[in-house]
């Protein structure tokens, strides 16, 4: 019983690893947006949700993010079920509605089959009817903020506001004294929203 089951494969957990790590070893692809293996997992975008059930109660599966959930020999994991597909498409459709101009988001949506999937009410609403609220390509994954905190330790970026008013900016909207122009934030940005300018 010391093996986790992931997509019907028995998998021996080697140490403290997340479900996403385990899947990578098994070449099981789980899409992510707010994840970078060098930065602490965050669990915000919800794209990497997988079905997690306990072996003692396999019927009662919950959706958990693969990036923040630690692998556990008591788990049975499904990464490709219809339920997962529905959830992932929903997340991607919401992001498409948020930033319809982002080529990266469109490409990922294409890859996980959003466009080719059967039409449904939610998809139709989010892709055709929903009002647009932002003109940014930022999906608020927070990778830029976290890389600046954790890797370069410059703390030059942060979040301000909450809910739909949340955005990434520098403290008090002024150029951060601590920014060294290293470009890490631009490098990790999944939608290429941050650009560097010559000073």
């Amino acid at each position: 019983m010391d093996k986790m089951i992931i997509d019907n494969i028995e998998y021996r957990i080697t140490g403290s690893e997340t479900i996403l790590d385990s899947a990578k070893v098994l070449d099981i692809e789980i899409p992510t947006l707010c994840h970078n293996e060098h930065i602490k997992p965050y669990g915000a975008c919800r794209l990497c949700l997988v079905e997690v059930a306990l072996k003692s109660n396999p019927e009662a599966a919950k959706l958990m993010p693969a990036c923040t959930t630690l692998a556990d020999p008591n788990y049975i994991i499904k990464t490709k079920s219809e339920r997962i597909q529905k959830a992932r498409h929903f997340i991607m459709e919401m992001l498409l509605s948020r930033c319809p101009e982002s080529n990266e988001i469109k490409a990922l949506a294409e890859k996980i089959g959003v466009y080719s999937s059967e039409n449904n009410r939610t998809k139709d609403y989010l892709l055709n009817r929903a009002a647009s609220y932002t003109d940014t390509k930022c999906i608020l994954c927070g990778l830029c903020v976290r890389v600046c905190d954790e890797i370069t330790e410059r703390y030059a970026l942060g979040f301000s506001g909450r809910g739909m008013k949340r955005r990434v900016n520098t403290p008090f909207d002024k150029i951060s004294d601590s920014c060294i122009g290293c470009g890490s934030c631009a490098y990790v940005c999944p939608t290429k929203t941050i650009t560097l300018e010559e000073a």
Binding site: A44, I91, M94, I139, G142, G161, R166
Partner: peptide
């Protein structure tokens, strides 16, 4: 109004 805005479904979904 009170959603912190961290996760996509709560931030975007409740707005829709």
């Amino acid at each position: 109004e009170e959603s912190c805005g961290k996760c996509t479904p709560c931030r975007e979904g409740t707005r829709h």
